[in-house]
């Protein structure tokens, strides 16, 4: 992989843009895919959000000041895109966020791209019961195995706050799974 600075510089130049963009997509597509998938749960929605995320990155790369790392900037866009997507979805269906989370988890049973068993379904139910920020933090730490420092720069939250939230989230999920 080429250095981040070079990649950004190439993305900003018309002649090298296309090639650099392909490199960017190939480098980050899987990580961002899973990040988004854990928020919106269903593959087709993830595909939409992921494509929009990369399109936003492409169009806004000129505004990228380099104050944060490229990947945390992209993660932030992906997170915002996912949350906005869910908000508009709940608005369209005329239900609130909690009801939407319930519907999404219930839809997993019939989802061809979900092959989890009872335990995994319960895990999703447990995660869905968490407040939005705890859910993001739990997924990023437990499944995506990001460092607290990385999550901190993506979510703009202090490391101490993240540790506390993660600890709480784990306790809640364990309690939820025990009671099921």
């Amino acid at each position: 992989m080429i250095a981040e600075q070079t990649l950004i510089a190439e993305l900003k130049q018309t002649e090298t843009q296309a090639k650099a963009f392909e490199m960017l997509v190939n480098t980050y597509k899987e990580r961002l895919y899973w990040h988004i998938r854990r928020i919106v749960l269903n593959h087709d929605d993830t595909d939409d959000v992921l494509q929009n995320t990369f399109i936003k990155v492409y169009k806004n790369i000129h505004n990228f000041k380099g104050e944060s790392k490229l990947y945390s900037w992209m993660y932030r866009i992906a997170t915002n895109e996912s949350l906005t997507f869910l908000k508009s979805k709940s608005k369209k269906l005329g239900i609130n966020d909690a009801e939407l989370q319930q519907t999404m988890v219930n839809n997993l049973k019939a989802d061809v791209y979900f092959e989890g068993d009872e335990i995994q379904l319960n895990l999703q139910k447990a995660i869905a019961s968490l407040p939005e920020k705890q859910k993001l933090i739990f997924n990023m730490k437990y499944f995506e195995e990001l460092k607290y420092e990385e999550i901190s720069s993506i979510l703009d939250t202090s490391v101490g706050g993240l540790k506390a939230s993660y600890h709480l989230a784990v306790k809640k999920i364990e309690a939820f799974l025990k009671n099921e």
Binding site: R37, R38, L41, F114, Q120, Y142, E174
Partner: peptide, 14 residues
């Protein structure tokens, strides 16, 4: 807490 979530993706999606 299980590590495997059970999500799948279509073949050759990426």
């Amino acid at each position: 807490i299980p590590k495997n979530e059970g999500f799948k993706i279509p073949e050759s999606y990426f």
